[in-house]
Amino acid sequence: MSSKVLVALRIKAAPLRVFEVFTADIGAWWRPNDLFSFTPRSPGVLAFEGAGEARGEGVRLVERLPSGKVFEIGPVRVWTPGERLVFGWRQATFAPGMDTEVEVRFEAVGDETRVTVEHRGWDTVPIEHVARHHFPDGVFLHRHGAWWRDLLESLRQSMISPSP
């Protein structure tokens, strides 16, 4: 897995709090993007299922679709509250062997948390695959990075002005 998109920003809150909002409230701050739909029936609502029950064991990131079906985006591979989160990421169109992975790091910097998302493994998805929309590799990765940047900004905003 060498192909990589990394984005980072700071949020004025403690790492553990940011981790909690990232995981428990992902359905609220997540912003779907038509270019990167998980399924043809998306968007739904994202959730880390099983979180908080077995300290990461068996937790998976899913999208609960409007139809009532649940699509598994990927299993959680590392669940270290306040520090690190790693989960698989696949779209419904991925063939076996196509697999990407997201690592999120939460680091204290003064009274802020630096949140870093590293999404790697897009080299396992061929450039001609439908998920890549015929974009050249660099353009695709750049668009994906821009989306992650928007997502982290949405996370940040949700922590500045929590929903009522």
């Binding site: 060498s2 192909s3 700071r10 080299d123």
Partner: peptide, 16 residues
Amino acid sequence: FELVMLIEDADGNLAH
């Protein structure tokens, strides 16, 4: 300076 975005190609080369 603080890194806020990094994109690497399949060979691990910096693209942006």
